[in-house]
C-alpha cells in the first residue's frame, strides 16, 4: 500500500529552514537525477540524493531520518554537474547541522577500535568529526 504524505504549513517551514541554512534555491531542483548518477556513495544510501532534494522540496522532515545525508562525502561531484547550478552537498550539510545542533552526534569516537584509531590519518578523523559530530 502506497504511503500518503501529508503536506502541511509545517512542511513549508521545514523547507524554508533548510533553504536558509544551505543558501540553496532548493525549489528550482527539476529532479533530473544528475546528482544521484554522480554520487560515489550511492550504494550506501537509503534514498537517492535527488530523492532527498524532493523530500526537502515537499517539506518532509523525514529527510532528517535518512542515511543519505550522513554518508555524503562532500565530494562535490554533484555540485559541478547540477544543471540548475544547485549544490546538493550544502543541502546535505544543512540537514546534518539541524540534527547536530541538537547535540545529537552521529559518530562516537568510543566506537572506533583502538587499532583503527591509531592507523587513521589525522585528516580523516578531523574531517569525520567536523561533518558527523556537533
Amino acid at each position: 500500500m502506497a504511503e500518503t504524505v501529508v503536506i502541511t504549513v509545517k512542511s513549508e517551514a521545514f523547507l524554508k529552514k533548510i533553504v536558509a541554512l544551505s543558501a540553496e534555491a532548493i525549489t528550482v531542483c527539476d529532479q533530473c537525477g544528475t546528482c544521484s548518477g554522480s554520487c560515489p556513495m550511492i550504494a550506501e544510501m537509503d534514498v537517492t540524493p535527488s530523492q532527498l532534494m524532493r523530500m526537502v522540496q515537499l517539506g518532509q522532515s523525514e529527510a532528517l531520518d535518512t542515511k543519505t545525508m550522513w554518508v555524503c562525502a562532500s565530494c562535490f561531484a554533484c555540485t559541478v554537474r547540477c544543471p540548475r547550478g544547485l549544490d546538493v552537498s550544502k543541502v546535505a550539510e544543512a540537514l546534518r547541522q539541524v540534527t547536530l545542533r541538537r547535540s545529537v552526534d552521529h559518530l562516537d569516537i568510543r566506537n572506533i577500535p583502538d587499532d583503527e584509531l591509531a592507523e587513521l590519518p589525522q585528516i580523516a578523523l578531523v574531517s569525520a568529526f567536523r561533518k558527523l559530530t556537533g
Binding site: P40, M41, E44, W70, V71, A73, S74, C75, A77, H106, L107, I112, L120, A124, L125, S127, A128, R130, K131, L132
Partner: peptide, 9 residues
C-alpha cells in the same frame, strides 16, 4: 571520490 572521511565510519 575515494570516500574521504567516510573511511572513519
Amino acid at each position: 571520490c575515494c570516500g574521504s572521511y567516510q573511511t572513519v565510519q
